[in-house]
Design a protein around this nucleic acid. Sequence first.
DNA 1: GTATAAACGAGACGGTACGTCCCGTCTTTGT
DNA 2: ACAAAGACGGGACGTACCGTCTCGTTTATAC
Lengths: 199, 199, 199, 199
Amino acid sequence: MPTASSQPRRTRSGNRRDEAARLAVLHAADDLLVEHGFGALTVEAIARRAGVGKQTIYRWWPSKVEVLLDTLIEDSDKRSAVPTEQPTAESIQAYLRGFARFLTRDPAGKVLLALMAEAQHDPATAQSFHQRYLGPRREQEREMLARAIDAGEISPRLGPDATLDALVGPIVYCALTGASVPRGLVSTLVEDLLRPRPK
Amino acid sequence: MPTASSQPRRTRSGNRRDEAARLAVLHAADDLLVEHGFGALTVEAIARRAGVGKQTIYRWWPSKVEVLLDTLIEDSDKRSAVPTEQPTAESIQAYLRGFARFLTRDPAGKVLLALMAEAQHDPATAQSFHQRYLGPRREQEREMLARAIDAGEISPRLGPDATLDALVGPIVYCALTGASVPRGLVSTLVEDLLRPRPK
Amino acid sequence: MPTASSQPRRTRSGNRRDEAARLAVLHAADDLLVEHGFGALTVEAIARRAGVGKQTIYRWWPSKVEVLLDTLIEDSDKRSAVPTEQPTAESIQAYLRGFARFLTRDPAGKVLLALMAEAQHDPATAQSFHQRYLGPRREQEREMLARAIDAGEISPRLGPDATLDALVGPIVYCALTGASVPRGLVSTLVEDLLRPRPK
Amino acid sequence: MPTASSQPRRTRSGNRRDEAARLAVLHAADDLLVEHGFGALTVEAIARRAGVGKQTIYRWWPSKVEVLLDTLIEDSDKRSAVPTEQPTAESIQAYLRGFARFLTRDPAGKVLLALMAEAQHDPATAQSFHQRYLGPRREQEREMLARAIDAGEISPRLGPDATLDALVGPIVYCALTGASVPRGLVSTLVEDLLRPRPK
DNA sequence: GTATAAACGAGACGGTACGTCCCGTCTTTGT
DNA sequence: ACAAAGACGGGACGTACCGTCTCGTTTATAC
C-alpha cells in the first residue's frame, strides 16, 4: 500500500492533489446515495455537498460511478473481508453471514447494490465494476475455497465459480429484492453444497 | 370527382385508447432497451421511435419503467411460464433452465434485469416491480412447490421462500454479472435442495 | 332507479347550430380575456369554461381571434356607436369621448386593444381585424366627417383619413400605454384640427 | 500546416458572461422577429438560431420580451434619438418624422410595435416596457418640449404629456394599423398644436 | 315512422414550446 | 499546478395547448 500522507492537512490546495477534497467527494457521494438514493447522485450534487468544484471531480474520476467504486472498495474490505486465514466450513459460513449483513443492513452495502444495478444500465460501469470489485473479490473467494478444500474442510460438488454463485447468488438476490436473508438459508447452503454426503 | 372512399379506413384514433399507439410504444421501448441499453431509454426516444407524441406516453404510463413492466409481464408469461400442471422435480428443473435461458439469452430477459436494476435506484420502481412482477411470480412458484411437495415429488429442507431464493438467486446473480449459468448448477441445486437425502 | 328526466333540460343540440353554445363561447372568451388576460385565452380554456367541445369552436371559428372579433363587433356598436344623425362638432367630440371611455374603462374595450395587439403578431389577425372592424368603422367615421363638412360644421385642414388618425390615434395610444386620456385632449384636438381658424 | 495560433482566439466562455453569446442572442431575436414575426419568436428558436443553449438565454433574461427590449433600447437611441440640442419647432418636427420613419420603415421599429402589442397581453411585459422604454423616452421628450417652450420656440395649448400623446399617438396608430403616416399629418400637428395662434 | 345527417360533449392523437435540471467541457481567478 | 466557481452548448424532463380526428349521443328534417 502506498504512502498515505497523514497530517490533518488544513491548507486548501497547492499544486498537489488535495486529500481533503478527495475525501469530501467520497463522503458526499456516499451520503447522498444513502440519504436520497442513486437518483439524487449527480455530479453537481456531489460537488455542491462536498463544497468542491465540478472540475475537481472530473479531474480525478471519469464518472460518478468510479467515485462510488472507490468508496465501495475501501468499505468492503473493512466491513466484509474474505477470510485469509486457513478457512473452515464455519468461517466460510460466518463470512457469508457477514456479507449478508453488509448487504442488507450496512449503508455501505447500498453502494454495492447501486453499482451492480448501474452495471446493468451502462457497459462502462459493468466493465469497471467487474475489473475493480467483482473480479478481485471472486479471486479471493476462490482462494478461500481452494484452501478449505485442500485442508479437507469442504468438498463441494460443483466447480469453484458455480459453488460461489450458488452461495452468494441467493444472498445478493434477497438484498436486491429488498428481502432479508431467510433464517437457515446460509447454513443450509453451506451444509448441502459444501459438504455433500458421499454417495 | 369520383368518391372512392373504399379501403379499411385507417381508423387512427378517436375517443378511446389507440391500440396501435400502445403497441408501438411497448415495442419501441423494448427495441431501444435491447439495441442501445437503458441509458438510451428516454421517454423522448420512445416517442420518437414509436412515432407517437410524448403526451400519449404520459397519458397512459406514469413512467418509462411502467412501460417496461408492461412488456415484461406480457413476455415473461410467454417465454418462461411457471408450470401449472402437476409439477415434478424434473419439470421444476426444466423451468429453472428455461428461466436461465430467458434471463441470459432472450432479449426480453434484459427487460427483467433492467427493471431489477432500476428498482435499486428508485423506490417507486421497486414498489411497482414487486407488486406487478416479483410478487405474482413468487406466488406462482410457491404454488408450484407446494403441489410438488404434496405429490411427494420433492421435500425441500427450507421453507418455500428460502428454497426459491436459493434456486432463483444464483441464476439471477449470474445474469446480473454477465456470466452464463455454469453447467450443472441448476441440476445440483435441485438435487441438493429439493431432494435432500433422508438421514 | 327511476330516472325522472325532469328539469328544464338544456336541449343540447340537434341538426342545426346550437345558439346556446355560440353564446357560451363568446361569453367565455370575453370573460377569460377580462379576468385573466390574453395569455390565458386558449381554445382549450374557452371550451372548458363554455362547457363546450373544442371541435365546436373550430367548427364555427377559424381561430380564437375570430371569436374575439365577433364579440367586439357586437359590443362596439352597442357601446360606442358612430353618430349617424347629422353630426356636429359637438357630437363628434362626444363620440370621441365615448370612444375614449370605451377603450379605457369598458371591459369590452380590452377586446379591441387585445385584437389590435394580436394583429401586430399575426398577419392573419391583422387581415381579419382590418376587414371586419377597422375598415367598416373607418368608413362610418369618414361618412360622419363628410356630412359634418357638408353641413359646414367643421372644416378640417387635413384629409379625412389623416384627420381621423389625428383624432383617434392619441386616444388609442393612451389606452395602449395604460394611461387615461388627459383632460382637455379631445376638446383641443377637435377645436384645433376640425375648426382651424382661417388665415 | 503551420502552427499559426494567431487569430483572436475563439475564447468561447469561462467564468464570466460571454459577450459573443449575448450578441448572438440579441441578433437572433431581432432577425427572427423581422423575418418570421412574433409568433416565430420562441426561446427555442432564438437559441437554435443563435447557436446557444436555452439555459444561456434563461440565465440572463427573464423572458424573450426582455431580449427584445434590450435590442430596442440599443437601436432606438441610434436610429431615432430625441434631440438634445436646443430644439426648435423644426427640429421637433424632424424628430417626429424620423420617428415615423423608424416605426413604419425600419425593421427595428417592428420591435417597438411588437413590444407595445405584447404589453397588452402580458402585465409583466407592460411593466418592463414602461419602465425601461416608454418612461425614459417620455422623460426625454418632455425635456425637449420644456426647453423649446423656454426658448419661446413653441407654446402648446396642452400640458406636456397631452401634447406628446397628441403628437406621437397618431404616428403610432398609423404604424399599428399598417398604414403609412399621411403626408402633411406631422406638419399640421406641429403647427396646430405647438404654435396655436394667439387669440 | 323511421332513417339520415348534422352538431354536440368528450377526449385521444402527433406535435411544438415551455422553463428546469444536469451533463461534460471550458475559462477565469485565487492560493 | 490545483482548486472553487460557474458560463457554456446540449438534451431530456414532465406540462400545456395546438389543431385534427374519432366516438357515441341527440335531435330536426326528409323520406
